[in-house]
Amino acid sequence: MLLEALPENGLNCPGGYAPSIDKRFACAFANRCPQASGKCFETPEMVRVEQHNVRCHLYGA
């Protein structure tokens, strides 16, 4: 979702491009993610997805 939202791809990121400063969430993108849940209040583990490292509960074990 984030890569698709790059300006050169012609799409816009809901809520803007700057990370959120809402400290209630452990994830800076939780308030803009359509798949956010209560787990986003907790810091996820870093996991490897293909050739990328991500911190997201959607990709955790």
Rank of each mutant, 00 (worst) to 15 (best):
C33N: 06
K39V: 06
L2E: 15
G15I: 07
F41L: 14
F25Q: 01
H52I: 12
H57I: 00
Q51R: 15
I21V: 06
S20E: 04
A61S: 14
F29N: 01
C33H: 02
K23S: 13
A30S: 07
M46H: 08
R32T: 10
R32D: 06
I21T: 11
F25W: 13
K39S: 12
P19S: 00
Q35D: 09
C33Y: 00
F25E: 04
K23F: 10
V54L: 13
S37M: 03
L6R: 15
C13N: 10
N53K: 13
A28D: 06
V49I: 15
A61D: 15
V47H: 02
H57Q: 01
C40D: 02
C13W: 07
A30N: 02
P44A: 04
Y59W: 14
R48I: 13
L58I: 09
K39M: 14
N12W: 02
A61I: 11
L6V: 11
P34W: 08
F41N: 06
P19I: 04
C27A: 03
K23P: 05
F25G: 00
C40N: 01
S20G: 02
G10F: 05
N53L: 15
S20T: 03
H57P: 03
G10A: 06
Q35S: 10
G38Q: 11
F41W: 04
N31E: 15
G38E: 14
A36R: 09
C40R: 02
P7R: 09
A30L: 04
L2T: 13
V54N: 04
Q51N: 15
E45W: 05
P19V: 05
F25H: 00
Q35A: 00
C27T: 02
C13M: 14
I21S: 08
P44D: 00
I21L: 08
A28I: 02
H57E: 04
A5K: 07
N31G: 04
I21E: 12
A61V: 14
Q51L: 13
